[in-house]
Computed example of a mutant assay.
Amino acid sequence: MSARRTREVSSLDIARLLAAQAVMFYHLVFLSWAEAERSRGIRAVVGNPVIFYGSQGWASLGWVGVQIFFVISGFVILMSAENKSASDFLIGRIARIVPGLWVFSTLSALVLLGCGVLPARELAIRLMRSLALFPVGPWVDGAVWTLVTEAVFYGAVFACIKTGAIGRITSIMIASTIFNLILWGAVLLGEAGIFGDAGRDLASLAASYKLRVTLVTTNCYFVAGAALYQMFMRRSLRINAAIFAANYTASLISTYYAGLSSVGVSRFGQDPLAAAEVWGVATLVMSACVLSRVGSGPRFVRLATIAGLVTYPLYLINQITGGFILGAMYRTGLAPMVCVILTAVFCTGLAGLFALLLERPLQVRLRGFLKRFERSAGVLKEA
């Protein structure tokens, strides 16, 4: 990736950090008390949660940050896949994700163990699922499911590079777009009762985890991001603008159905349309900033670079570890919202320390190990 291109898309790093902050406040302000008591997640590690009724309307929508991540990923991964071999792409993705995943999953497991939330055997199973990005949960942290989805997307891009299909990426995006339009058209018709019970079953299935993690109902976000990248590079503008518009529309519908299964809607009667509206506005603003090359100045770029580095560890630390810190803050007797703010600052600071001091060396070592393994495997294959 050239330095010039990095400067031009630095606004994406700011958008990514804002999305991570939205997810964090969703966990700390809403899910910390709204989660089911037997879920053995953030509510359990908080201990005695504080109910923020006044913040319910906005905090319950923070999960939409995940859908924004998916769009950004579609953009960034297509950009990073250019001029890469399949093995280089795969090694790069593993080195990027694994160090943070393993460190913070282990930290979450230690928190759960220290709080007595889970028996050791079940905790060990959850930890192994998390470290391996096993597609079926539960994991030590609920955030892992989104990484599983990302990994499936990486696998699809890897297959495209390996088979040479990456050179026909526009055709693949068009095929995905047609699929998405047919799928969500059928879901809406089913919701309207056109197909009877089968249609209602399809609408219900559209909100399920299985279809989200396998990209059936989430590929529209990634394709929208990939189309945005193609537009950014000024490639086939009309075609890619149409692809973006179609998948943006499909993503609005997908966000609505994801909202139906969210805690805010299922337990507290929130309007699922609100989630689609928030995602829609945020994505349009982000896309406009990217296409307008907003934030290409050196000072903004330095800030954006740090923001981008902090985002991933912050996403991994804010739920279980963050919930534990929040519970400890509550016990000091400080005002509840002050406790939330201090916890958010602490989590962001800890994520920053990891990103700036530890993550890069760990990634370099892992990348080197994978490169050596690749060479050894090649020699053995030739022999």
Rank of each mutant, 00 (worst) to 15 (best):
A95V: 07
A95I: 15
A95F: 11
R96C: 04
R96T: 11
V98L: 12
P99V: 08
P99Q: 02
P99W: 05
G100N: 07
L101V: 05
L101K: 03
W102K: 01
W102H: 02
W102L: 00
W102D: 04
V103G: 04
V103D: 00
V103T: 11
V103P: 04
V103W: 01
F104H: 04
S105E: 00
S105R: 03
L107P: 08
S108W: 02
L110N: 07
L110G: 12
L110I: 03
V111H: 02
V111I: 04
L112V: 01
L113G: 10
G114F: 02
C115H: 13
G116E: 12
V117R: 04
V117D: 01
L118E: 06
P119Y: 15
P119C: 09
A120I: 05
A120G: 08
A120D: 09
E122Y: 13
E122H: 06
L123K: 11
A124Y: 08
A124T: 11
I125D: 15
I125K: 11
I125N: 12
I125F: 11
R126G: 15
R126V: 09
R126C: 11
M128P: 02
M128Q: 15
R129V: 07
R129N: 13
S130Y: 02
S130D: 01
S130L: 04
L131I: 08
L131S: 01
A132R: 08
A132N: 09
F134Y: 14
